[in-house]
Amino acid sequence: MVERERGDEGEAKGLSGEPLQPPEGAEVPAKAAAAEGERDERERGREGEERDGDGKAEEGEWSEIRLAIEELSPAAPLRPGGGGGGDGKPAASSPPTLRFLALAHLLLRVLDKIGPTMAVLRLDVQRNIERLQELYLLDPSKYATLTEIVEKEVKEGTARKVDSCARAVLWLTRSMDFTIALLQRLEGGSDQPSLAQLTEAAYTATLKPWHGWIASAAYKIAMKLIPERKIFIGMLVAGMDHDSSALKEEIEKLASLLQPLLDDIHAMMAKFRLDRLKST
């Protein structure tokens, strides 16, 4: 979660969820622009290719979960130039920035499905994406991995500041921890706890330990407005022919692919002694 100084409360940005632009006046490198354009075109193609004339989703539409699985596929390049170790595997301490940003954007879409009650978390996620993306676009080669970004700020002595990219990486990772914890708790029949109860459990296990009383109070209010569990699940199974068993399988697959990345990021943050930072 983004930490704010007292005078920063009124500077909330729009919640459109549209692809973010680089800072005003900054030149977007051709490689970065091409990569972003290719990714956007790919997602638009998947989401739109199976829609009928009324705009309704048909079987084969790509859900956020499927898009995240595709993004995490071992066949996909982890960084520009296919970096990694000599054995073809990526270095555990160097999570790729572009992939991380793509997953963060998908996280926003999952939060949108929960509804306006997640506005607090959604705003923080979007602010953190903006901050990290702006730096990445300045030099995609230099900031190809999250390690390079965090290490830069550690050397400059700015990593612990409230507006640092290091904190953005930390809170985006914690937000992904929350999301995967929530999705994994959705398994089970209709007699399972409500979505509000599942969300509270996921929040308690992931974000709550790092929140101060202000952030905790905001989430306590938000939990009272969570939609029904079956409505949320219905939106998640788009593209799975409304098959709850398929949803369970894909959540398990996503968790198996995403957890190693999250573990690598947490390990990296611990290496720089930034893993225990809290909000107000």
Rank of each mutant, 00 (worst) to 15 (best):
Leu107Asn: 15
Arg127Pro: 01
Tyr136Lys: 06
Thr145Cys: 03
Leu198Trp: 08
Asp139Asn: 12
Trp171Asp: 02
Val110Phe: 10
Leu135Gln: 04
Phe100Arg: 07
Thr179Glu: 10
Leu183Ala: 04
Ile129Ser: 05
Ser93His: 14
Glu130Ser: 10
Lys161Ile: 13
Asp139Met: 05
Val154Asn: 01
Asp163Gln: 14
Leu183Asp: 05
Phe178Ala: 05
Met118Cys: 12
Asp163Tyr: 06
Ala102Lys: 14
Phe178Trp: 07
Leu108Tyr: 05
Ala168Met: 01
Pro95Leu: 04
Val110Leu: 13
Glu200His: 05
Thr117Pro: 07
Glu187Cys: 01
Gly157Trp: 08
Pro96Met: 00
Ala102Leu: 15
Met176Lys: 06
Ala196Trp: 02
Glu151Ile: 09
Arg185Met: 13
Thr145Met: 08
Pro95Tyr: 02
Arg131Ile: 03
Ala181Ser: 00
Thr158Gln: 06
Thr199Ser: 12
Met118Tyr: 14
Arg109Asp: 15
Gln197Met: 03
Glu134Pro: 06
Arg99Lys: 12
Val125Met: 03
Glu151Pro: 01
Lys142Val: 10
Ser190Ala: 13
Ile149Ser: 03
Gln192Tyr: 09
Leu111Phe: 09
Leu195Val: 13
Lys161Cys: 13
Ala119Ile: 11
Gly189Arg: 12
Gln184Cys: 12
Ala92Leu: 10
Asp191Ala: 14
Ser164Ile: 02
Ile129Tyr: 06
Ala104Ile: 05
His105Val: 11
Leu172Phe: 00
His105Cys: 09
Pro96Trp: 03
Phe100Trp: 04
Arg160Val: 12
Arg122Tyr: 09
Glu200Gln: 07
Gln184Ala: 07
Thr147Pro: 01
Arg122Trp: 06
Arg174Ile: 04
Arg127Leu: 07
Thr173Asn: 11
Leu135Ile: 10
Ala119Thr: 13
Thr199Leu: 08
Leu138Met: 09
Leu138Gln: 13
Lys152His: 14
Gly189Asn: 15
Phe178Met: 06
Leu108Gln: 08
Ile149Trp: 00
Leu137Ala: 14
Leu183Pro: 00
Val169Ile: 09
Ala119Phe: 13
Asn128Pro: 00
Ala181Lys: 01
Thr179Met: 11
Ile114Phe: 07
Lys89Val: 15
Gln192Cys: 11
Leu132His: 02
Thr117Asn: 08
Phe100Cys: 01
Met176Arg: 05
Gln126Thr: 03
Leu121Lys: 05
Leu132Ser: 02
Val120Gly: 03
Thr173Ala: 07
Ala168Phe: 01
Tyr136Met: 08
Val120Lys: 00
Met176Asp: 05
Glu151Gln: 13
Lys155Asp: 12
Thr97Ala: 08
Lys161Trp: 09
Ser141Pro: 04
Asp177Gln: 06
Arg185Phe: 14
Ala144Pro: 00
Pro116Phe: 09
Asp177Gly: 09
Ile180Leu: 01
Ser141Cys: 04
Gly188Ile: 02
Gly157Ile: 13
Ser141Tyr: 09
Leu138Pro: 03
Pro116Lys: 10
Ala166Glu: 04
Ser175Arg: 01
Arg109Lys: 14
Leu111Ile: 04
Glu148Lys: 15
Asp112Trp: 12
Ile149Met: 01
Ser93Pro: 12
Lys152Val: 15
Pro116Ala: 08
Tyr136His: 08
Ala91Ile: 11
Gly188Trp: 02
Arg131Asp: 02
Lys113Met: 14
Arg160Thr: 15
Lys155Ile: 15
Tyr143Thr: 13
Leu172Ile: 06
Arg127Gly: 07
Ala181Val: 06
Val169Asp: 00
